[in-house]
Amino acid sequence: GNAVQEIMIPASKAGLVIGKGGETIKQLQERAGVKMVMIQDGPQNTGADKPLRITGDPYKVQQAKEMVLELIRD
């Protein structure tokens, strides 16, 4: 079955996860074999953390989460 996890991405790092024209998030999805969606909560909310929703095989979702956390670590 499918697992769904959401991680909060600091607004300052959201661009890093998505990448230029969505390149990075696309590569992450391909590498991890999961679906990732950045939940954009309207323009008034630009400074707030953005939830990144990861959907897929539970094991792969976990892997994907680690990859993203690695990416946004300072």
Rank of each mutant, 00 (worst) to 15 (best):
K60E: 04
T24V: 11
I7S: 00
A11R: 06
V34L: 02
V34E: 01
Y59G: 14
E30D: 11
K60M: 06
G21D: 11
E30M: 14
A14Q: 14
V37G: 04
T46K: 08
G1V: 15
Q5F: 09
P58E: 13
I9E: 00
N45L: 05
Q63P: 02
E70T: 09
E70G: 10
G1Y: 08
E66G: 10
G33I: 00
E6R: 05
P58W: 10
T46A: 08
Q44W: 07
T55V: 10
E66T: 11
G47H: 04
E70H: 07
Q29Y: 01
L71V: 12
P43K: 15
K20Y: 11
T46Y: 06
L69M: 15
D49R: 05
Q62A: 13
V17H: 01
G19E: 03
Q27A: 09
A32S: 12
L16W: 08
Q63E: 13
E6L: 04
G47F: 12
G47E: 10
K13D: 05
D41N: 15
P43V: 12
N2K: 15
I72K: 02
V61G: 01
V34Q: 00
G15F: 14
I54K: 00
Q29M: 10
G15M: 15
Y59H: 15
L52Y: 01
M38R: 02
R31P: 02
T55E: 07
D49N: 10
D74H: 04
D74S: 06
S12T: 13
V37P: 01
I25C: 03
R53P: 00
G47P: 06
I39W: 07
V61I: 07
Q63R: 11
A3D: 14
Q63D: 06
A14M: 14
V37H: 04
I7H: 00
K50L: 14
G22I: 02
G19F: 02
Q62K: 12
G1P: 04
D49A: 11
I39L: 13
T24H: 11
Q29N: 03
T46G: 11
Y59I: 15
A3W: 15
D49Y: 12
Q44T: 14
K13N: 05
V34N: 01
K50S: 08
V17W: 03
D41C: 11
I18G: 05
A3V: 14
I54N: 00
Y59F: 13
V37C: 14
Q63W: 04
V68H: 02
R53M: 11
V61W: 00
Q29G: 05
E23G: 14
Q44I: 10
I7D: 00
V4P: 02
Q40R: 09
E66Y: 05
G33D: 07
P58L: 08
L16Y: 10
I18K: 06
M67R: 07
D74L: 03
I54R: 00
V17F: 14
N2C: 15
G19Q: 03
L52K: 00
R73F: 04
K65S: 06
L28G: 00
A48R: 12
I39H: 07
R53H: 10
T24K: 13
N2D: 04
G1I: 15
M36I: 09
I7W: 01
A3C: 15
L16N: 06
V68N: 02
A32V: 09
V68T: 05
G33Y: 02
D57F: 03
R53Q: 12
L28Q: 01
Q44L: 09
A32Q: 08
G47I: 04
V68A: 04
P43D: 09
V34Y: 00
E23D: 10
A14F: 12
R31L: 05
I54Y: 00
V61H: 00
G19W: 02
K26S: 07
K60Q: 10
R73D: 15
Q62T: 12
I54E: 00
M36C: 03
Q62I: 07
L71M: 11
K35T: 07
P58R: 13
G21N: 15
K60R: 09
L52W: 01
N45P: 09
E66K: 13
P10D: 03
G42M: 07
G33F: 02
V34P: 00
A48S: 10
E66Q: 08
G15Y: 10
T46N: 08
A64I: 02
V61K: 00
L71S: 04
Q40K: 11
M8D: 04
K13R: 04
E30V: 11
A3P: 15
I18Y: 06
Q63F: 06
V68W: 00
S12Y: 05
A3Q: 15
Q5Y: 13
L52R: 00
N45V: 09
E23F: 06
E23M: 10
K50V: 13
Q62M: 08
E70F: 03
A48E: 14
K35G: 08
M36K: 01
S12E: 12
G21W: 04
D49K: 07
M67S: 08
K65T: 09
E23V: 09
A14T: 15
M67D: 08
D41G: 12
Q29E: 11
Y59S: 13
L69V: 07
I18H: 12
E23Q: 12
N45E: 11
G1L: 10
G22V: 03
I39G: 11
N45Q: 10
M67F: 06
V68R: 02
P58K: 12
P58H: 13
G19T: 02
P51Y: 09
K60V: 02
S12P: 13
D41F: 04
G21R: 13
G42E: 13
Q5W: 14
T24I: 06
P43G: 15
T24L: 06
M67T: 06
V4K: 14
R31V: 06
E30C: 13
E66C: 06
D57A: 12
D49G: 07
I72G: 03
A14D: 06
R31G: 06
I7P: 00
A11F: 05
G15I: 11
I25K: 02
V37S: 10
S12M: 08
E30T: 08
K35A: 06
R53E: 06
L28R: 01
M38H: 05
M67K: 06
I54C: 02
A48V: 12
P43T: 06
D74A: 07
K35D: 08
Y59Q: 14
P58M: 12
I39E: 13
K50T: 12
M67V: 05
P10E: 03
E30I: 11
A14K: 08
V4W: 06
L71W: 04
G33T: 03
I7M: 15
E70Y: 04
I54H: 00
Y59A: 14
T55L: 10
I7T: 02
L69Q: 13
G42Y: 15
I9L: 07
I72W: 03
Q63C: 14
E30W: 07
T24D: 04
Q27D: 13
K26V: 05
A64V: 03
D41R: 09
D49F: 07
Q63M: 11
E66L: 07
A64M: 02
L52I: 09
N2F: 15
P58I: 11
S12A: 14
V68K: 02
V37F: 08
I25M: 14
A64K: 01
K20P: 11
P58Y: 11
A32T: 14
Q63V: 10
I9F: 01
K13E: 05
K35P: 02
V34A: 05
T24Y: 06
S12H: 12
I25G: 01
L28E: 01
K50W: 09
Q29S: 11
G1W: 02
K13S: 08
P51I: 07
V17Q: 01
V61Q: 02
Q27L: 07
E70D: 15
P10Q: 02
G15V: 11
V68Y: 01
R73C: 13
D74V: 05
L52H: 00
Q5E: 15
G56N: 01
M8N: 08
M8H: 06
K35W: 03
G42R: 12
R53Y: 05
V4A: 03
R73H: 14
V4F: 15
Q44D: 13
K60I: 01
I25S: 02
L52D: 01
N45S: 09
G1K: 10
P51C: 13
